[in-house]
Design a protein around this nucleic acid. Structure first.
Length: 208
DNA sequence: AAGAGGATGAACT
DNA sequence: GTTCATCCTCTTG
């Protein structure tokens, strides 16, 4: 059984809860008729306006961050370090700029195509084990910014295929690469599936 | 108009 | 563990 995640799922204001709920969900893309998909095994919650690690901190609205202020159920793509495209799920009602960064997936459908897009050897553990990696594997880039998640006829959507996780199957830890976020740097808003070999590498966390 | 810096990844040693 | 690739976005002037 599989069911498309709907508006109710995305409109919750509890972005930290949504980040956990997204684990074990399946993200599909249809890029020029080519379908690929992976199981989400790692996420991070970004909770504007108070969260300093969010691009929308203090409700800073710019041409880049504008999509995060829209109603939940679409995606926010941005470029990091000039190279890596990052996939985020926009959540919450309009004007609430919450988002969930998808940090790792386990290949599920069309692994061969994903490896080809990655221009790397077909190693299932190295296809989606990082936020930049999975975006490349799924064929996403900045042009997908603002794409709607709520139709299987679109470029990207997310399905619930059962197998929910219990609380003790989820590892919560501080987020990655946001040491500048001061008191928000220590919030345990990074979530991983326990014992999954498909997550990104554990990182040192730096506090300032 | 120019410059700094960033939710990283790969390929080195 | 270190380096560097590489470019958009925001800030400043």
């Amino acid at each position: 059984m599989s069911k498309l995640l709907n508006k109710d799922f995305y409109l919750s204001e509890d972005v930290v809860q949504i980040a956990q709920s997204l684990l074990n969900k399946v993200v599909y893309t249809n890029i020029n008729g080519q379908i690929s998909a992976g199981i989400i095994v790692e996420t991070e919650a970004y909770r504007a306006p108070h969260d300093k690690a969010s691009h929308a901190y203090n409700n800073k609205k710019t041409p880049r961050t504008e999509v995060m202020f829209r109603e939940g159920g679409i995606i926010y793509m941005y470029l990091c370090y000039g190279i890596h495209h990052m996939l985020n799920v926009v959540t919450g009602p309009e004007e609430i700029a919450h988002a969930v960064l998808i940090r790792a997936i386990k290949p599920l459908i069309n692994q061969e195509l994903m490896a080809e897009r990655r221009k790397q050897p077909n190693d299932k553990f190295n296809i989606g084990s990082g936020p930049g990696k999975l975006s490349m594997a799924l064929g996403l880039n900045l042009k997908n910014n603002g794409d709607n998640l709520q139709s299987k006829k679109g470029n990207i959507w997310i399905e619930d295929q059962g197998n929910p996780l219990t609380h003790d199957q989820i590892i919560a830890s501080p987020r990655v690469g946001i040491g500048y976020a001061k008191e928000y740097a220590h919030h345990p808003w990074r979530f991983r599936v326990l014992a999954s070999k498909y997550t990104s590498k554990p990182h040192k966390v730096s506090y300032t």
